[in-house]
Amino acid sequence: MSGTRSDDDLDPRLLTGAYALDAVSATEAESFEKATDSSATLRDETDGLVETATLLGLAATPVTPSTRLKADLMAKLSSTPQLPLSGAGSARHAATDAPESLDQAPDAAHSPAASVAEVIPAEVPATVSPAEAAPALAGPVESRARARWFSRPVGFVAGVAAAAALFVGGGFVGSALTDQPGAPVVTDASASGLAEIAAADDVARQTVAVDGGGTATLVWSNELGRSAVLVDGLPTLPDGKVYEAWYIDADGAAPAGTFAAAAEGTSWHVLDGALTPGDTIGVTVEPAGGSPAPTTTPIIVGETA
């Protein structure tokens, strides 16, 4: 440690290479990632360098593993639970179109959706949630790998990060998201709900264009049975109108709460009620107070699959 510290050392822009090579401390990585959330330039450079770093792995001399390694691994598969597929559509496929080879692992394959509840909690603490547990099995660096690959969509990450930052601000949340101070469009409960979904192991999301302008990102966790919609650039509605979210399935649309959209930045709404895997999430414009059933054409439609 002969380095001399200067202000330059703290400039995240200089850290992209070190970060991509996993040559930063956990603390640095954390603050660096915060910086990438608020800078598209930084983020792009980082993503490119991370991708480049992985190619370096291909320059390492290959080493033939012992035969025991594979034997041990294969023996462990049947007793090693798998994370469920993100969407119910995929889960259905797994259930009904399971390859014949799955005969070797019937329990793991034939009822993925139904068995999620039993399968996941048993294994989660030690192995599939390294961010929260078991540093010996998965340390901070590897957790960042997960963070990058499993929740990387840039807009989404930035949106959630912004949300998290606002949430940390406590009472700041509401007024920051609406042009009407004192009329919060989200509550702290909603913010923590979003954080909870975003942190779920099976978090999935989809970005969809919005009829009439703007973008919406649907975020959901089948494990939690919860979902949220993050919106950006939606028109501010006239007095007497609200956005209303819906869970839509073959039986129709169930109301999932109303919300307003901020004039600028990202607003979000954690849907009321429970998400059933495979539900379609919709948003319509409704009279203030919401409607029991949609009265207009949805401006946002996305399948949780």
């Binding site: 996993d22 770093a53 792995g57 340390g139 590897e142 997960r146």
Partner: peptide
């Protein structure tokens, strides 16, 4: 990426 980060950890 997974391999490298686990190795570094």
């Amino acid at each position: 990426t997974m391999s490298h980060r686990r190795a570094v950890d």
